[in-house]
Design a protein around this nucleic acid. Sequence first.
DNA 1: CCTGTATTTAACCATTAGGTTATATACATT
DNA 2: AATGTATATAACCTAATGGTTAAATACAGG
Lengths: 125, 125
Amino acid sequence: MLAQERLTSTFQALADPTRRAILSRLSQGEASVTELAAPFSMSMPAISKHLKVLERANLISRGKEAQWRPCKLEAAPLQQASDWVEQYRAIWEARFDRLDAYLKEVQAKEKKITKPRTANGRKKS
Amino acid sequence: MLAQERLTSTFQALADPTRRAILSRLSQGEASVTELAAPFSMSMPAISKHLKVLERANLISRGKEAQWRPCKLEAAPLQQASDWVEQYRAIWEARFDRLDAYLKEVQAKEKKITKPRTANGRKKS
DNA sequence: CCTGTATTTAACCATTAGGTTATATACATT
DNA sequence: AATGTATATAACCTAATGGTTAAATACAGG
């Protein structure tokens, strides 16, 4: 599978709260389909479909134990998703840095200009 | 907006290669709709829709300059997406650690048991 | 072999997604 | 005012999503 396709199927799989909850549950260990379905007010076939989406995205793998098909988290594809998102970290942090700088600047001004203030620390209007 | 909803709209927006490419382009600076559309063999309305998805996910903001609506990357929502994915880092790294440990173990055995080998380094059957 | 339990598949439905073309809107320029 | 350029909206299409219920399958145990 191409990298783009992998990213697409990973993000698409993550774009559903039920599926994210399932992954979260699986991060604490394997679970059967019935166990995974329990927290949701949703039919079994609906869960079955979500699991199929997760499986096609290689985010889970499945075993066979008697009539159970235990699900296991496969976190590997998340690494590439992480890598993709991390490309932008510098940008969102820069944004906060600028905000931070701005706040510091404002704070500096507040210190200099010693005007009367209210009890809660804000300027009087 | 609730955290879950934000995650959903962010991941959903990222689950399309065209939109990811648009974000990638915008990481290098603002761009007009026409500029963003250029690399794709796709109609303008299609791009317009993609931009609307990105805008609703707060991944871009838009300005007004004459007849242009320049798009600007807003990376903030990516931080929460990153936070979510990072929860699983320990898990995917553990997986590699185990693989690494296994490979080291195998390598150790290979060294101890000095048996005849083929030219390509594998054991003779 | 029958029964119960776990899970999947089939058939269906409503909504959303992602694309199209044609039309409308907004602004700049002449 | 007329034209050209940039973008958005409308109307439409097809396919995919996310759910349902009912039926099929797979296995274990009496």
